[in-house]
């Protein structure tokens, strides 16, 4: 019996493997997979980051704009705090748009998503075990947040 399972990198992966070992299933092979990114996402999440940052420039602009607008705000009606915050938010958004436009010019065919929702199998586990233990293995892996499972015979 061979079970193939896919995982994201997380503590649960190690917890799953060690629990399998405790139950006497030690014939395990692990293949970490390199991610191939097609469409970049603006926001990185716990499991996902594409090494492309759309935010860096925006935060620099935020500092510049909020400083200048806070100064001008002393004279303007809404005061320095509101104008400082407006400048900050405006800077982030403007920097954002500039980065996205730059990216779009370079890569015309690619889409930019706000957040990547798809879960990606970052590790493939291959587990050899006897047929009777199949349910146990499935149970352990499922409790430890496995993404996908396949059984071969």
């Amino acid at each position: 019996m061979q079970i193939i399972a896919t995982y994201e990198h997380s503590k649960y992966l190690e917890l799953g493997i060690t629990e399998l070992q405790q139950n006497g299933i030690t014939d395990i092979f692990a293949v970490p997979i390199k991610k191939v990114m097609k469409n970049p996402a603006i926001m990185d999440t716990i499991h996902h980051s594409d090494g492309r940052s759309f935010l860096d420039f925006g935060f620099l602009l935020a500092v510049v704009f909020s400083t200048i607008l806070a100064c001008r705000g002393l004279v303007w009606e809404w005061g320095p705090i509101y104008w400082g915050l407006i400048g900050g938010a405006g800077g982030v958004i403007l920097g954002f748009l500039i980065e996205i436009v730059k990216f779009k010019i370079k890569n015309k065919d690619k889409k930019v998503k706000i957040k990547s929702k798809d879960k990606f199998a970052e590790v493939i586990l291959i587990i050899n075990c006897e047929k009777e233990k199949m349910d146990l293995v499935t149970d352990i892996l499922t409790r430890n947040l496995v993404l996908g499972l396949a059984m071969l015979e």
């Binding site: 992966l13 092979f29 970490p32 291959i126 015979e153």
Partner: peptide
């Protein structure tokens, strides 16, 4: 960094050279 560390751990501990991958049929 967490991902990289875990990757190193898996490569060092869970890739025995004598491991055989079966050419079985998908059951489930």
């Amino acid at each position: 960094i967490f991902d990289k560390e875990q990757k190193d751990y898996l490569i060092n501990n869970f890739q025995p050279s004598n491991y055989k991958i079966k050419k079985g049929r998908l059951v489930k």
